[in-house]
C-alpha cells in the first residue's frame, strides 16, 4: 500500500518539475474551446447551445494528448521494469499511474471546465452539473487511457495511436457526460445520466487496471 502512494507521489513530483508539460493539457483544452467561436461565429445563442458538448470534447482531447507519456518515459529509461519487480502487482501499478495522470491532467480540467463553459456562454444553471459530471468522467479518461498507453508501448507512432484506440472507447463517457450537462441546462433530470456516468467510472475502475496490466506484461516480455 505504501508503495502505491510512494509511486503516485513520485509521479506528481516529476510532473511538478516539468510543470509546463503538465499544464499543456489544460492549455490545449482552452485553445480548442477558443477555436470554436472563431470557427462558427460569436453568436451567444449558438455557442450556448453547443457549450456542453464542446467543453466535453475539449476535455477528452486534452486528456488524450498527454496519455502517450503515461508509461512511455518509464518504459524508455528502464524504470518500468524496476517498478514491475517491486512489491505492487501490475494492476496496482497501472492504477497508481492512472491516478497520478488524473491528478495532473483531470483535476485541472475539472477546475477549468466552468471557466471554459462561461466563455462559451453556458448559462450558470449548468455549471454545477458540468463540474460534477467532469469529476465522474475525467477519471474514466485516465483509466481507459492507461489501457491504450500500455498497449502502444514499444510501438511506432505511439502518440496518435493511443488517441485512435481510446477515443472510440470513450464515446459512452462523452455521451453521458454531455447529456447530464445538457439536461441540467434544459431543466431536466440530470441524475440518470450522472448515474450512468458513475457506472462507467465503476466499470473502468474494475476492468481498466487489469487490461492495462495485461498490456504492461506484454510490453515487458
Amino acid at each position: 500500500m505504501t508503495a502505491f502512494f510512494v509511486l503516485i507521489r513520485r509521479d506528481l513530483a516529476l510532473s511538478a518539475r516539468q510543470a509546463a508539460d503538465a499544464l499543456v493539457a489544460v492549455m490545449f483544452a482552452v485553445l480548442v474551446v477558443v477555436l470554436f467561436p472563431f470557427g462558427i461565429g460569436p453568436e451567444a445563442d449558438i455557442l450556448s447551445r453547443i457549450s456542453a458538448g464542446v467543453v466535453w470534447v475539449a476535455a477528452l482531447l486534452a486528456a488524450m494528448l498527454s496519455l502517450d507519456r503515461l508509461f512511455q518515459a518509464d518504459h524508455d529509461d528502464g524504470s518500468l521494469e524496476q517498478l514491475a519487480l517491486g512489491p505492487l502487482p501490475l494492476w496496482a501499478l497501472a492504477l497508481a499511474k492512472a491516478t497520478a495522470h488524473w491528478l495532473v491532467t483531470g483535476l485541472p480540467l475539472i477546475v477549468a471546465s466552468p471557466i471554459l463553459a462561461i466563455m462559451l456562454q453556458m448559462p450558470t444553471a449548468g455549471l454545477a452539473t458540468l463540474v460534477l459530471a467532469m469529476a465522474l468522467g475525467t477519471p474514466c479518461f485516465s483509466l481507459l487511457g492507461a489501457i491504450g498507453a500500455a498497449l502502444v508501448l514499444g510501438a511506432r507512432r505511439g502518440g496518435v495511436l493511443v488517441a485512435f484506440l481510446i477515443l472510440p472507447l470513450a464515446i459512452p463517457v462523452l455521451i453521458f457526460g454531455a447529456a447530464a450537462t445538457e439536461a441540467a441546462l434544459t431543466a431536466q433530470e440530470a441524475a440518470p445520466h450522472l448515474m450512468l456516468l458513475g457506472a462507467c467510472l465503476l466499470a473502468s475502475l474494475a476492468l481498466a487496471p487489469a487490461a492495462a496490466a495485461a498490456g504492461l506484461r506484454q510490453a515487458l516480455g
Binding site: 489501457i147 498497449l151 502502444v152 510501438a155 484506440l165 472510440p168 472507447l169 464515446i171 459512452p172 455521451i175 453521458f176 447529456a179 450512468l196 462507467c200 466499470a203 476492468l207 487490461a211 495485461a214 498490456g215 506484454q218
Partner: peptide, 23 residues
C-alpha cells in the same frame, strides 16, 4: 497487444451501443 485491445473493445461494444441508443 491486439488481443488485449480486441477483448477490451468487445466488452465495450454493447456499452457503446447502449450509449448511442441513449444519445
Amino acid at each position: 497487444a491486439g488481443a488485449i485491445l480486441a477483448l477490451v473493445g468487445w466488452i465495450n461494444v454493447p456499452i457503446v451501443k447502449f450509449s448511442v441508443d441513449w444519445w
